[in-house]
Protein backbone atom coordinates (compact mmCIF):
# COMPACT_ATOMS: atom_id res chain seq x y z
CA UNK A 1 0.00 0.00 0.00
CA UNK A 2 2.75 2.43 0.94
CA UNK A 3 4.40 2.05 -2.47
CA UNK A 4 1.16 2.92 -4.20
CA UNK A 5 0.63 5.95 -1.96
CA UNK A 6 4.19 7.16 -2.56
CA UNK A 7 3.55 6.78 -6.30
CA UNK A 8 0.33 8.80 -6.08
CA UNK A 9 2.04 11.49 -3.99
CA UNK A 10 4.86 11.77 -6.55
CA UNK A 11 2.40 12.02 -9.47
CA UNK A 12 0.44 14.74 -7.66
CA UNK A 13 3.58 16.70 -6.80
CA UNK A 14 4.82 16.51 -10.40
CA UNK A 15 1.42 17.63 -11.75
CA UNK A 16 1.13 20.56 -9.34
CA UNK A 17 4.74 21.75 -9.58
CA UNK A 18 4.86 21.67 -13.40
CA UNK A 19 1.36 22.99 -14.00
CA UNK A 20 0.55 25.43 -11.20
CA UNK A 21 0.45 28.28 -13.73
CA UNK A 22 -2.43 26.37 -15.34
CA UNK A 23 -4.66 26.77 -12.29
CA UNK A 24 -7.00 29.03 -14.27
CA UNK A 25 -9.84 30.46 -12.22
CA UNK A 26 -12.19 31.51 -15.01
CA UNK A 27 -11.87 32.77 -18.63
CA UNK A 28 -13.36 36.11 -17.52
CA UNK A 29 -11.62 36.36 -14.13
CA UNK A 30 -9.51 39.46 -15.06
CA UNK A 31 -6.72 37.87 -13.00
CA UNK A 32 -3.81 39.71 -14.57
CA UNK A 33 -0.21 38.54 -14.33
CA UNK A 34 2.74 40.25 -16.00
CA UNK A 35 2.98 43.77 -17.41
CA UNK A 36 0.19 46.28 -16.76
CA UNK A 37 -0.59 49.76 -18.02
CA UNK A 38 1.43 48.95 -21.12
CA UNK A 39 0.22 51.86 -23.28
CA UNK A 40 1.42 54.51 -20.80
CA UNK A 41 4.90 52.94 -20.61
CA UNK A 42 5.17 52.75 -24.40
CA UNK A 43 3.83 56.29 -24.89
CA UNK A 44 6.61 57.59 -22.68
CA UNK A 45 9.14 55.85 -24.95
CA UNK A 46 7.47 57.09 -28.15
CA UNK A 47 7.42 60.70 -26.96
CA UNK A 48 11.09 60.54 -25.94
CA UNK A 49 12.26 58.79 -29.13
CA UNK A 50 10.29 61.01 -31.51
CA UNK A 51 10.68 64.35 -29.68
CA UNK A 52 13.04 65.88 -32.22
CA UNK A 53 11.98 63.95 -35.33
CA UNK A 54 10.37 65.53 -38.39
CA UNK A 55 9.79 62.20 -40.11
CA UNK A 56 7.75 59.54 -38.31
CA UNK A 57 7.51 55.93 -39.55
CA UNK A 58 4.94 53.72 -37.91
CA UNK A 59 3.20 50.44 -38.62
CA UNK A 60 -0.59 50.17 -38.56
CA UNK A 61 -2.02 46.77 -37.74
CA UNK A 62 -5.01 45.32 -35.88
CA UNK A 63 -7.51 42.46 -35.54
CA UNK A 64 -4.93 39.99 -34.29
CA UNK A 65 -7.61 38.11 -32.34
CA UNK A 66 -7.20 34.32 -32.32
CA UNK A 67 -4.36 34.53 -34.86
CA UNK A 68 -1.37 34.06 -32.57
CA UNK A 69 0.83 32.25 -35.13
CA UNK A 70 0.30 35.02 -37.68
CA UNK A 71 0.81 37.72 -35.03
CA UNK A 72 4.21 36.21 -34.13
CA UNK A 73 5.13 36.36 -37.85
CA UNK A 74 3.92 39.97 -38.01
CA UNK A 75 6.17 40.95 -35.08
CA UNK A 76 9.14 39.34 -36.86
CA UNK A 77 8.22 41.22 -40.06
CA UNK A 78 8.03 44.60 -38.26
CA UNK A 79 11.34 43.97 -36.53
CA UNK A 80 12.96 43.11 -39.87
CA UNK A 81 11.89 46.47 -41.36
CA UNK A 82 14.16 48.40 -38.99
CA UNK A 83 13.87 52.12 -38.24
CA UNK A 84 10.20 51.87 -37.20
CA UNK A 85 9.30 54.44 -34.54
CA UNK A 86 6.25 52.61 -33.15
CA UNK A 87 3.32 50.33 -33.92
CA UNK A 88 -0.37 51.26 -33.66
CA UNK A 89 -2.62 48.25 -33.05
CA UNK A 90 -6.14 49.19 -34.12
CA UNK A 91 -7.95 46.89 -31.68
CA UNK A 92 -9.49 43.41 -31.37
CA UNK A 93 -6.67 41.93 -29.40
CA UNK A 94 -9.04 39.25 -28.14
CA UNK A 95 -11.78 37.29 -29.86
CA UNK A 96 -13.95 36.35 -26.87
CA UNK A 97 -12.91 38.95 -24.25
CA UNK A 98 -11.12 36.23 -22.25
CA UNK A 99 -8.40 37.47 -19.90
CA UNK A 100 -5.80 34.98 -21.09
CA UNK A 101 -6.20 36.17 -24.70
CA UNK A 102 -5.18 39.70 -23.72
CA UNK A 103 -2.15 38.45 -21.83
CA UNK A 104 -0.98 36.16 -24.64
CA UNK A 105 -1.27 38.94 -27.23
CA UNK A 106 0.48 41.42 -24.91
CA UNK A 107 3.35 38.96 -24.50
CA UNK A 108 3.67 38.61 -28.28
CA UNK A 109 3.62 42.42 -28.80
CA UNK A 110 6.41 42.77 -26.27
CA UNK A 111 8.59 41.11 -28.90
CA UNK A 112 8.47 44.32 -30.99
CA UNK A 113 11.82 46.12 -31.13
CA UNK A 114 9.91 49.41 -30.95
CA UNK A 115 7.16 50.68 -28.64
CA UNK A 116 3.50 49.98 -29.46
CA UNK A 117 0.06 51.23 -28.45
CA UNK A 118 -3.14 49.20 -28.50
CA UNK A 119 -6.63 50.63 -29.12
CA UNK A 120 -9.73 48.86 -27.79
CA UNK A 121 -11.79 46.90 -30.34
CA UNK A 122 -15.37 45.64 -30.21
CA UNK A 123 -14.34 42.04 -29.44
CA UNK A 124 -12.24 43.40 -26.57
CA UNK A 125 -15.47 44.63 -24.97
CA UNK A 126 -17.06 41.15 -24.63
CA UNK A 127 -17.69 39.90 -21.09
CA UNK A 128 -15.09 41.45 -18.79
CA UNK A 129 -12.86 42.26 -21.78
CA UNK A 130 -12.95 46.03 -21.27
CA UNK A 131 -11.81 45.57 -17.65
CA UNK A 132 -8.96 43.28 -18.76
CA UNK A 133 -8.01 45.81 -21.47
CA UNK A 134 -7.93 48.67 -18.94
CA UNK A 135 -5.81 46.67 -16.48
CA UNK A 136 -3.30 45.57 -19.12
CA UNK A 137 -3.20 48.43 -21.63
CA UNK A 138 -4.79 51.40 -19.83
CA UNK A 139 -7.51 53.96 -20.58
CA UNK A 140 -9.79 53.35 -23.57
CA UNK A 141 -9.34 56.95 -24.80
CA UNK A 142 -5.77 58.23 -24.86
CA UNK A 143 -3.43 60.49 -26.75
CA UNK A 144 0.29 60.81 -27.36
CA UNK A 145 2.65 62.99 -29.29
CA UNK A 146 5.21 61.75 -31.85
CA UNK A 147 7.30 64.81 -32.71
CA UNK A 148 4.88 67.42 -33.99
CA UNK A 149 2.08 64.93 -34.59
CA UNK A 150 -0.61 64.37 -31.98
CA UNK A 151 -2.19 60.89 -32.14
CA UNK A 152 -5.70 60.72 -30.67
CA UNK A 153 -6.85 57.14 -29.95
CA UNK A 154 -10.56 56.67 -29.24
CA UNK A 155 -12.99 53.99 -28.17
CA UNK A 156 -15.64 54.01 -30.92
CA UNK A 157 -17.25 50.60 -30.21
CA UNK A 158 -20.63 52.13 -29.39
CA UNK A 159 -22.76 49.08 -30.22
CA UNK A 160 -21.10 46.92 -27.56
CA UNK A 161 -22.06 49.43 -24.88
CA UNK A 162 -25.62 49.94 -26.18
CA UNK A 163 -24.83 53.22 -28.00
CA UNK A 164 -24.23 55.39 -24.90
CA UNK A 165 -23.54 59.12 -25.15
CA UNK A 166 -19.87 58.80 -24.23
CA UNK A 167 -18.81 56.38 -26.99
CA UNK A 168 -17.20 58.08 -28.83
CA UNK A 169 -16.48 60.51 -26.01
CA UNK A 170 -17.17 63.92 -27.56
CA UNK A 171 -16.32 65.66 -24.26
CA UNK A 172 -12.85 64.15 -24.44
CA UNK A 173 -12.55 65.30 -28.05
CA UNK A 174 -13.63 68.81 -27.01
CA UNK A 175 -11.10 68.82 -24.17
CA UNK A 176 -8.33 67.95 -26.63
CA UNK A 177 -9.54 70.64 -29.02
CA UNK A 178 -9.26 73.19 -26.21
CA UNK A 179 -5.73 71.97 -25.46
CA UNK A 180 -4.72 72.27 -29.11
CA UNK A 181 -5.29 76.04 -28.99
CA UNK A 182 -2.61 76.53 -26.35
CA UNK A 183 -0.10 73.93 -27.60
CA UNK A 184 2.14 75.39 -30.30
CA UNK A 185 4.12 72.14 -30.67
CA UNK A 186 0.97 70.29 -31.81
CA UNK A 187 1.10 70.90 -35.56
CA UNK A 188 -0.48 67.79 -37.11
CA UNK A 189 -3.10 65.30 -36.01
CA UNK A 190 -3.88 61.64 -36.63
CA UNK A 191 -7.11 60.21 -35.18
CA UNK A 192 -7.10 56.43 -34.56
CA UNK A 193 -9.99 54.14 -33.67
CA UNK A 194 -11.20 50.58 -34.13
CA UNK A 195 -14.50 51.14 -35.97
CA UNK A 196 -14.76 54.05 -38.34
CA UNK A 197 -17.91 56.18 -38.85
CA UNK A 198 -20.72 54.90 -41.11
CA UNK A 199 -20.28 51.31 -39.91
CA UNK A 200 -22.82 49.32 -37.89
CA UNK A 201 -20.81 49.41 -34.64
CA UNK A 202 -20.24 53.20 -34.70
CA UNK A 203 -22.79 55.57 -33.14
CA UNK A 204 -23.78 57.14 -36.44
CA UNK A 205 -26.13 59.62 -34.74
CA UNK A 206 -23.04 61.60 -33.76
CA UNK A 207 -20.84 60.85 -36.76
CA UNK A 208 -21.14 64.39 -38.18
CA UNK A 209 -20.18 65.92 -34.81
CA UNK A 210 -17.35 63.40 -34.57
CA UNK A 211 -16.01 64.37 -37.99
CA UNK A 212 -16.36 68.07 -37.13
CA UNK A 213 -13.95 67.52 -34.23
CA UNK A 214 -11.62 65.48 -36.46
CA UNK A 215 -11.56 68.38 -38.97
CA UNK A 216 -11.07 70.99 -36.23
CA UNK A 217 -7.81 69.63 -34.83
CA UNK A 218 -4.55 71.16 -36.09
CA UNK A 219 -4.11 69.91 -39.68
CA UNK A 220 -5.56 66.43 -39.42
CA UNK A 221 -3.54 64.32 -41.85
CA UNK A 222 -5.65 61.13 -41.84
CA UNK A 223 -7.52 58.70 -39.59
CA UNK A 224 -6.78 55.04 -38.92
CA UNK A 225 -9.23 52.22 -38.20
CA UNK A 226 -9.46 48.41 -38.26
CA UNK A 227 -12.44 46.05 -37.68
CA UNK A 228 -13.64 45.04 -41.15
CA UNK A 229 -10.76 42.66 -41.89
CA UNK A 230 -9.83 44.22 -45.22
CA UNK A 231 -7.52 47.03 -46.33
CA UNK A 232 -9.05 50.28 -47.47
CA UNK A 233 -8.35 54.00 -47.74
CA UNK A 234 -11.62 55.93 -47.94
CA UNK A 235 -12.56 59.61 -47.74
CA UNK A 236 -15.84 58.84 -45.93
CA UNK A 237 -17.12 62.41 -45.55
CA UNK A 238 -15.63 63.88 -48.75
CA UNK A 239 -13.64 66.37 -46.69
CA UNK A 240 -10.21 65.19 -47.76
CA UNK A 241 -9.55 63.19 -44.57
CA UNK A 242 -8.86 59.59 -45.52
CA UNK A 243 -9.65 56.69 -43.16
CA UNK A 244 -6.96 54.02 -43.51
CA UNK A 245 -8.20 50.62 -42.42
CA UNK A 246 -5.81 47.83 -41.45
CA UNK A 247 -6.71 44.22 -42.18
CA UNK A 248 -6.82 41.15 -39.94
CA UNK A 249 -3.84 38.91 -39.29
CA UNK A 250 -5.04 36.08 -41.53
CA UNK A 251 -4.40 38.43 -44.49
CA UNK A 252 -0.76 38.68 -43.34
CA UNK A 253 -0.48 42.33 -44.39
CA UNK A 254 0.47 45.46 -42.46
CA UNK A 255 0.39 49.13 -43.42
CA UNK A 256 3.60 51.17 -43.16
CA UNK A 257 2.91 54.91 -42.88
CA UNK A 258 5.56 57.61 -43.13
CA UNK A 259 4.70 61.16 -42.04
CA UNK A 260 7.00 63.88 -43.35
CA UNK A 261 5.98 67.33 -42.16
CA UNK A 262 2.47 67.97 -43.43
CA UNK A 263 2.38 65.07 -45.90
CA UNK A 264 2.39 61.32 -45.60
CA UNK A 265 2.68 58.20 -47.69
CA UNK A 266 1.69 54.62 -47.06
CA UNK A 267 2.46 51.17 -48.38
CA UNK A 268 1.15 47.68 -47.72
CA UNK A 269 3.69 45.06 -46.69
CA UNK A 270 2.88 41.37 -46.89
CA UNK A 271 4.69 38.87 -44.69
Amino acid sequence: MSRFLYGIAIVLMVVISTSCEMLDVHPHSVHITGARNVNAQNIKQIEELCASKDTIRFVLTGDTQSWYDETCDMVRCVNSLGDIDFVVHGGDVSDYGMTEEFMMQRDIFQGFNCPFVTIIGNHDCLGTGEQAYEAIFGATNFTFKAGKVRFICLNTNAMDFGFPEDVPDLNYMQQLLDESKSDSTWQYTVVSMHVQPATVVFNNKVMDQFEEYVRSYPKTLFCTAAHDHYLSATDIFGDGIVYHRSTSMDDRTITLITIMGGTYEYEYITF
Binding site: S66, W67, D69, Y96
Partner: peptide, 13 residues
Protein backbone atom coordinates in the same frame (compact mmCIF):
# COMPACT_ATOMS: atom_id res chain seq x y z
CA UNK B 1 -12.97 28.91 -27.29
CA UNK B 2 -9.47 27.85 -26.23
CA UNK B 3 -9.81 24.61 -28.21
CA UNK B 4 -10.70 26.58 -31.35
CA UNK B 5 -7.70 28.85 -30.79
CA UNK B 6 -5.44 25.83 -30.17
CA UNK B 7 -6.62 24.30 -33.46
CA UNK B 8 -5.97 27.60 -35.29
CA UNK B 9 -2.50 28.12 -33.79
CA UNK B 10 -0.58 24.85 -33.72
CA UNK B 11 2.76 26.67 -33.45
CA UNK B 12 2.03 29.20 -30.70
CA UNK B 13 -0.55 27.50 -28.49
Amino acid sequence: SYLIEAFMNPKYM
